[in-house]
């Protein structure tokens, strides 16, 4: 019941945080001089990327814990995190496209961050294909845990390898100085909102998955 408490707390927090965040992004944040209103995607896009990475980090640690403890709990945790990770990485790629079109005049560009996110997205689509193809749940859990660990470990290597192409991605660190302090504050607020939303989603999806598992096992028992 502890997770239930965290969930309801997060839920009420998010009822306040999400509208407030949207209000800050669209009404309070100053319009960027060069890029104009489209720059507001930044407040969604970057936190979404963090959320996606949080999801995949969840897969990584849950997978390790599964192989260690051999407890199906961690498998459920791993694949629910993976689902949330795939959802957010899809959104990152889409919002990135909307940003890139007016700013760089292209829908897609072969930038290290984009490629890394795309590769990660591919790996985890493969993760779900693998899961779909194995029927023994224990085996499915073990095999996808191996893929989850290998896939996430790949991120820094892909990132490093792709970095040696010229990057045209706007960098927070360099332009941070010129960024309006209000922008930074709103960005951080948005980041907080999205990360709590991610945690909430993982918890929520996790509970649904547990109920699903319970229902299928009860159905089976009825059939017997």
């Amino acid at each position: 019941m502890k997770s239930g408490k965290i969930m309801s707390t997060l839920f009420f927090l998010l009822i306040i945080l999400i509208p407030l965040d949207l209000f800050l992004i669209f009404k309070v944040a100053p319009t960027e001089k060069i890029m104009g209103d489209v720059q507001r995607i930044f407040y969604l896009h970057v936190p979404l990327a963090f959320s996606a990475y949080l999801g995949f980090a969840g897969v990584f640690f849950s997978s390790i814990l599964f192989l260690w403890r051999k407890n199906m709990f961690w498998d459920t945790a791993a694949y629910t995190s993976a689902e949330v990770g795939v959802l957010f990485s899809t959104l990152v790629l889409i919002t990135g496209s909307f940003w890139a079109r007016p700013v760089w005049n292209v829908w897609w560009t072969w930038d290290p961050r984009l490629i890394t996110m795309l590769i990660l997205w591919f790996i985890f689509i493969g993760y779900f294909l693998l899961r779909k193809g194995i029927s023994d749940q224990f085996k499915k859990a073990r095999y996808s845990a191996v893929l989850g660990i290998v896939g996430v470990i790949d991120i820094p290597v892909v990132r490093l390898a792709t970095k040696w192409w010229r990057s045209i991605h706007p960098r927070l660190s360099r332009e941070g100085g010129s960024l309006d302090p209000l922008m930074v504050k709103i960005f951080l607020f948005s980041l907080l909102t999205f990360l709590s939303f991610t945690v909430f989603l993982v918890f929520f999806r996790f509970r649904v998955a547990r109920v699903e598992e319970r229902v299928t096992s009860l159905m089976k028992r009825l059939e017997d």
Binding site: I115, F122, G126, D154, L160, A161, T162
Partner: peptide, 9 residues
């Protein structure tokens, strides 16, 4: 599907 994304580096 599993192999190609991982061997990108």
């Amino acid at each position: 599907f599993l192999y190609l994304p991982v061997v990108v580096p």
